[in-house]
């Protein structure tokens, strides 16, 4: 779900970088408000590396297999660091695997990172009181995982299909968007279920990871 170099017009690339710049600045401001930001940097960095590595795990879905995106999960446990973590992860992917691209790094960070911030707010909704019921946590975890994937997929598909060429007529574009989204729904359900399982594992083993 990364836009490669050369696929979208420069206006999109520049807009992508502008939005990424803005969100990065905002995230850094939020991080500075933290009582001890120094302490969280090693944590966020290792999670960045861990999520990068975890995205290499493939889930068998015969006859093919899918890779997990996990941006919802990143949002849930990294908060405002998640946008930075995703930006860095995408940069690694571009440089090491030629996934995505340098000119499209900004727009790709928007596609992956803004849904992560959305997942952060969804998952930590009403989390301050320790009275939150288990089922409620599971529902929110599912929404964070599946929702952020759907959001990313929608952004990606709409940007690609409306921008790749001016020659497509409007109806074809809309059809193509719907068609692509259907296949992403399955992935979103898997991603949501995976997020629920992952959160429940962490609840049992290391709950402090989930408390900000």
């Amino acid at each position: 779900m990364h836009i490669p170099d050369g696929f979208v017009p420069p206006s999109i690339c520049i807009a992508g970088y502008a939005i990424t710049g803005g969100v990065t600045w905002y995230s850094l401001q939020q991080i500075k408000k933290d009582s001890n930001p120094q302490k969280k940097i090693p944590r966020a960095s290792l999670f960045t590396a861990a999520f990068f590595v975890a995205s290499l795990i493939h889930i068998p879905l015969p006859p093919a297999s899918i890779h997990l995106v996990l941006n919802g999960m990143m949002g849930a446990i990294l908060g405002y660091y998640s946008f930075l973590a995703i930006l860095i992860g995408l940069f690694f992917q571009t440089v090491m695997f030629q996934h995505g691209g340098l000119s499209t790094l900004g727009i790709n960070a928007v596609i992956m990172g803004i849904p992560a911030l959305f997942a952060y707010h969804i998952f930590h909704f009403n989390n301050r009181s320790n009275t939150r019921k288990k089922i409620w946590t599971q529902v929110l975890a599912f929404c964070a995982g599946a929702g952020s994937l759907i959001l990313s997929a929608t952004l990606f598909t709409v940007i690609i299909i409306t921008n790749i060429t001016s020659e497509l007529d409007a109806q074809t574009e809309i059809n193509a968007i719907y068609l692509s989204l259907i296949s992403y729904v399955i992935q979103a359900i898997i991603e949501g279920a995976f997020t629920v399982m992952l959160i429940s594992f962490l609840e049992q083993v290391k709950p402090e990871i989930l408390r900000q």
Binding site: R43, L46, A49, V53, F194, L198, I209
Partner: peptide
């Protein structure tokens, strides 16, 4: 799927513990 979630979870827990030492 659950096993793979636990695998990912273990990776996260180990990264977390490591990050405390790194810090």
């Amino acid at each position: 799927l659950k096993i793979l979630a636990q695998l990912t979870g273990s990776l996260l827990v180990r990264s977390y513990e490591r990050s405390n030492k790194v810090y």
